[in-house]
Design a protein around this nucleic acid. Structure first.
Length: 273
DNA sequence: CGGACAACCTGGTTGC
DNA sequence: TGCAACCAGGTTGTCC
């Protein structure tokens, strides 16, 4: 569900809200998201203080006192909320972390694609499962040169290339569409055919789009919600994604919808070359 | 190896 | 109203 701006928004809010609190009790309600929840209670999370939350790609790691951490991924439909445990449990809320201020961190996941499992990655390192992730698009390592170099030899289309997490993390279906629109590049182009000037435009567009989306608190298309249940507003600024048939905001041509690798792509056939 | 695609799971929307 | 088909923001494994 969430791409980088949504996860970053959740991460920031979570870090600000639960840092310094203790996990008093862990309550699990239904067996398994993608990984079993059974180890959660056995992992000795209860009684540990929350030290902080960090993000790598779409993964979040919540560090706890004593060298334990919790690896979390929201999948397609994961929602984290901090609210009183007395609020009636929703149908797909799988875990309650009861916190020392009386609130609960509640993990909801309708489609069960999420991950929430203990890991040993204290001291700022990351679980080995994240080893193959590419560069962070908001880091100084993500440059036009990097993007151009990485695209050489990739004969697949540029849209799938942007969504390849071993190249650059956090760009999913929504922001791939928005980025390509902003850069004026057709999603049908082969990655290896990009010029260095186009790679430059794309790198700038990726950074600008993600930063603008973070400022707006992410895009709430379907399930995505903030920690308090409110919605992100960037969906109002989407120029191409989900707008098939609507006029392009630049030239008025109808936005087209096509399928690439089984997923919908939206673009302006006139502006995007 | 790169790239296309199915599978994982549930629910909402669309269309007959 | 009923029901089937299709769609959905991610990741992983399989096949060619």
């Amino acid at each position: 569900m969430p791409e980088l701006p949504e996860v970053e928004t959740v991460k920031r809010a979570l870090d600000a809200r639960v840092c310094g609190l203790d996990i008093v009790k862990v309550e699990t309600f239904s067996p398994a998201m993608r990984t079993s929840l059974a180890p959660l209670s056995a992992a000795g999370l209860e009684g540990r203080r929350i030290l902080g939350v960090r993000r790598r790609g779409r993964y979040m790691v919540m560090d706890l006192a004593g060298g334990k951490s919790l690896l979390m991924h929201l999948g397609m439909s994961g929602v984290l909320r901090v609210e009183p445990p007395s609020v009636p449990r929703r149908k797909h809320e799988h875990i309650f972390f009861h916190l020392s201020d009386g609130s609960a961190l509640r993990f909801e996941c309708t489609r069960r694609f999420s991950i929430c499992e203990p890991c040993d990655c204290a001291g700022g390192c990351w679980p080995s499962a994240l080893d193959k992730l590419g560069v962070e698009p908001l880091s100084e390592d993500f440059t036009a040169d990097y993007l151009f170099g990485a695209s050489r030899g990739h004969t697949g289309n540029i849209k799938n290339f942007l969504m390849d997490n071993s190249i650059v993390v956090g760009v999913g279906n929504i922001y791939a569409a928005e980025t390509l629109f902003t850069a004026g590049v057709s999603p049908l182009r082969r990655a290896c055919d990009l010029t260095s000037a186009e790679a430059e435009k794309l790198a700038v567009a990726v950074r600008a789009t993600l930063e603008a989306a973070i400022r707006a608190g992410g895009s709430s298309i379907r399930d995505y919600r903030h920690l308090d249940g409110s919605e992100g507003s960037f969906s109002l600024q989407l120029k191409a994604y989900g707008r098939a048939g609507e006029p392009c905001p630049v030239c008025g041509t109808a936005i087209a919808r096509i399928t690439q690798s089984g997923r919908s792509s939206y673009y302006c056939p006139k502006c995007q070359k």
